[in-house]
């Protein structure tokens, strides 16, 4: 159940290969990759900086992964979240889930990213032509997490 918070980029293929290496019981791999858009709420974004709460971040991510593993029959879960300065097109987050069957892998992958959005202590700050601004939380994210009926 690896959880990583890092400045460095990640390689989806390499991460998935490592996650399922030697695991012949795995029949499904579901992945979500979040990336930096060049526009948010109608304004161009040139840089995105991600701040987090060291210590709590790792605990929050591990708790979300544990909740997913209790809910579905999963082989393994990997979460990588980047911090620091990012630019449009950069990768921000990876959630990869392996399971025997696709239904569980896909549901768990969505569950993990939905809860990450509302429970993991990360904050985004954007640089736009009008200056810097902290990104506001979206009510739609709360609704997406709530539909799982708690974690």
């Amino acid at each position: 159940m690896p959880v990583r918070v890092q400045y460095e980029d990640f390689d989806l293929s390499a991460e998935v290969a490592a996650l399922r290496a030697g695991r012949a019981q795995v029949g499904a791999v579901a992945c979500f990759v979040g990336t930096v858009r060049d526009i948010n709420q109608g304004t161009g974004v040139s840089t995105l900086t991600l701040e987090h709460y060291p210590g709590m971040t790792e605990k929050a991510l591990e708790a979300i992964v544990k909740a997913a593993q209790e809910r579905w029959a999963l082989d393994d879960v990997l979460v990588i979240h980047r911090i620091g300065a990012l630019a449009p097109l950069d990768q921000i987050v990876l959630v990869a889930v392996t399971s025997a069957h696709r239904g569980e892998a896909m549901a768990a992958c969505e569950f993990v990213i939905d809860w990450l959005k509302t429970d993991a202590p990360f904050w985004k700050k954007e640089v736009t032509p009008k200056g810097e601004r902290w990104v506001d939380a979206r009510e739609s994210d709360e609704a997406a997490a709530a539909r799982w009926g708690g974690r």
Partner: peptide
């Protein structure tokens, strides 16, 4: 203890 705005990761 920590105080912070609603989170915006992902």
């Amino acid at each position: 203890v920590a105080f912070f705005p609603p989170v915006t990761g992902g």
